[in-house]
Simulated assay, not measured.
Amino acid sequence: MMKTVRSSHWLATLTLAAVVALSALPARANTWPLPPTGSRLVGENAYHVVENDGGSLEAIAKKYNVGFLALLQANPGVDPYVPRAGSVLTIPLQTLLPDVPREGIVINLAELRLYYYPPGSNQVTVYPIGIGQLDSDTLTPTMVTTISDKRANPTWTPTANIRARYKAKGIDLPAVVPAGPDNPMGHHAIRLAAYGGVYLIHGTNADFGIGMRVSSGCIRLRDGDIAALFSAVKPGTKVNIINTPIKASVEPDGRRLVEVHQPLSKTLEDDPKTLPIVLNAAMTAFKDDAATDAATMEHAMEVRSGMPADVAAHHPESPDQTI
């Protein structure tokens, strides 16, 4: 639950905690050293005290370079348009790396994040993304592919389905949208080889939609993020797109962590907050293990905060059990 600070003493304390947390962040708040052997935990959550006229949740998400829905899930009950002044928001910067090879680009659709592993750097950069809308023509598919091409100041050639969809809204799209401020692909585009090259990782000319299902199937990044990724990757870079709403890790210190995101809706009637989360064999074994507190894990699967939570039946002896 979101808590409102009611005491000036606590407000001062939490403000200091926020400053300390932010000062501990790396130079680029979304780039972290890879964890030690046997660990999948990276990053560190921060805290934000909402000021008077502190802006919308989208503005705060952009400030810390996290996705809108990720910030909303980490702070249930907060007003997305006018967060209450004095409220303390958790900024979800901590995450478990997806359980796939740490190579190239890994995109987890369910958590609306892109992970980039720069070769030879022992680091990972985490970007919030926008993905395809809930429609058979605009879904972003899972795939293992490579980067086939990349272009600065790209033109946009909308598909027939996209033009028809816009037409139904009374908008006549040209056959080709030139580069410039009206181009929804922004200033940079990275083309993926699969499916004939119709899917891209690109920027945007909008100030909203990152961390949401807003695109026509492509992967959308904020302008500064796509510029950085564009300059770092080369054609041939591996791209692995998965859809995993729940991740787990047994950490070297004994913590048993789970990170649960809202599953992607499949129909308009679906409620991501209550959609069943299907556990695969490995996740079922993790839950059924005697070292896991099954009730705590069930609670994490209900809350779906999108942040790592310790579900160990017996917490390791440590002066600080916070994640």
Rank of each mutant, 00 (worst) to 15 (best):
P83N: 07
S56K: 00
L96N: 06
P76N: 03
P92E: 10
P92D: 11
L89C: 12
S87D: 14
N75E: 06
Y81Q: 12
L71E: 08
T95K: 10
A74D: 02
S56C: 05
D99G: 01
V50E: 04
E103G: 03
D99H: 12
E51K: 07
T90N: 11
A61V: 04
P101V: 09
D53I: 00
E103K: 14
Y64K: 12
T95D: 11
V88S: 04
A61Y: 07
V82W: 12
E103H: 14
A59H: 00
A74T: 07
E58A: 05
G55H: 01
T90F: 04
D79G: 11
V66M: 08
K62Q: 14
P92R: 06
L93S: 14
I105H: 13
I60Y: 00
I60D: 04
V66Y: 09
L72I: 02
A70F: 00
L69E: 14
V106F: 12
K63V: 02
A70S: 15
Q73K: 03
R84W: 09
N52E: 13
V106M: 06
I60M: 00
G77Y: 11
E111H: 03
R102D: 10
P83L: 02
L71P: 01
V100C: 03
G55E: 09
P92M: 07
R84D: 12
G104L: 14
A59N: 04
N52L: 04
I107Q: 08
V78N: 05
A85V: 05
L89M: 01
G86M: 01
A61G: 13
V100K: 03
E103S: 15
P98N: 08
N108T: 12
D53A: 10
R102Y: 08
N108C: 12
L57H: 00
L96S: 04
I91H: 13
V82H: 09
D53S: 05
Q73Y: 12
P98F: 04
E111I: 03
P83V: 06
L93R: 15
L109Q: 11
I107D: 10
N108M: 09
I105A: 14
T95N: 01
E51L: 08
G54M: 02
A85H: 04
I105T: 13
R102G: 09
K63M: 10
A74L: 00
Y64P: 13
G77M: 07
K62E: 15
G77Q: 11
G77I: 05
A59E: 13
R102S: 11
L96Y: 02
I107R: 08
Q94L: 06
L109M: 10
R84K: 14
Y81C: 04
V66E: 10
L69R: 10
L69K: 10
L89T: 11
G67P: 06
P101F: 09
A110K: 02
D79T: 10
D99K: 05
V82C: 06
P101G: 07
V88R: 01
Q94R: 15
G77E: 09
E103I: 05
I105R: 13
G86P: 08
R102E: 15
N108I: 13
R102F: 08
V50A: 03
S87G: 11
